[in-house]
Amino acid sequence: MVDLTSIFPSKFEFLGAEITPLEILISIAIFAIGVILARVLRMTVLRYVGVHLPEETRRGVNRAVYWGIIILAGLAALSNQGVDFTGALLGAGIFGIIIGFATQSLVANLISGLFMQIDKPMKIGDPVEIVDSNVAGVVTELAAFSTRLRMFDGTYARLPNEKVFTSQIRNFSKNIARRVEFQVSIGYKEDIVQAIAVINKTLYDIPMVLIEPAPNVFVDTLAESGVNINVFAWVPWQHWFHMRQQLVGQIKKQLDAVGVELPYPQRVIWFAEPSKNPLKNA
């Protein structure tokens, strides 16, 4: 008969601790339970809490719950073997300092990513402009170290979180409406009241120009070539680009229809002496 104790010695040494096969089995069981628990808890958290969270937060919580429990289970399993972590922790501390210096920017990106999760200047799907980096597009991913955007021309941009966090960020969808602003110039001989009435009527007939806050149309400047009229109109943010394109053309069309002149740059020239051009004098 084979002596099992010769194959599985009753005790052997592991990381300075004496352990038995039974203790190994218990450790494996602890770790396995930890893995199962991590999966169950991840599913439970996703089902009951995750549905109420934004996409990027849900992913973060998902990873944190799963890997947090796995690491705890691993530590518990090793502790069961009597493994002393004091030395390991000291070593990890020193190693951490070295790594910290070596990966300063990496850590800065990670910390910035965490703070962005708290500050929430944007979320996935938001059209934004990262002003300092001169990048504008739709947010596609808020990862641990970087923010990824699909720029309006369809290209892909990856920005380190540190740059994004410290930059001025314009989020075009944070408020439910945006103002379209442009200027229309009419000739000096034109009736300002009529022109403003035509512009107001044009704005009123376009459904996505909001009634409240009301559009604001007013004479801004008496310029070199004509009278400049400012047009401010609020529209839902999703329609801003389309409205910006549509409104100018529509107003031009309506002003043309009532015969309001939109002047070219022009200058009235006075001659100090009578012109020597015989045709002009005639």
Binding site: A177, R178, P207, L210, I211
Partner: peptide, 19 residues
């Protein structure tokens, strides 16, 4: 017929409404 929309509240935290 035509449709009109307005904000109830402010652009920061109001609601877009059919007016």
């Amino acid at each position: 017929g035509l449709q009109y929309y307005a904000i109830y509240g402010t652009p920061e935290n109001g609601l877009l409404c059919r007016y």
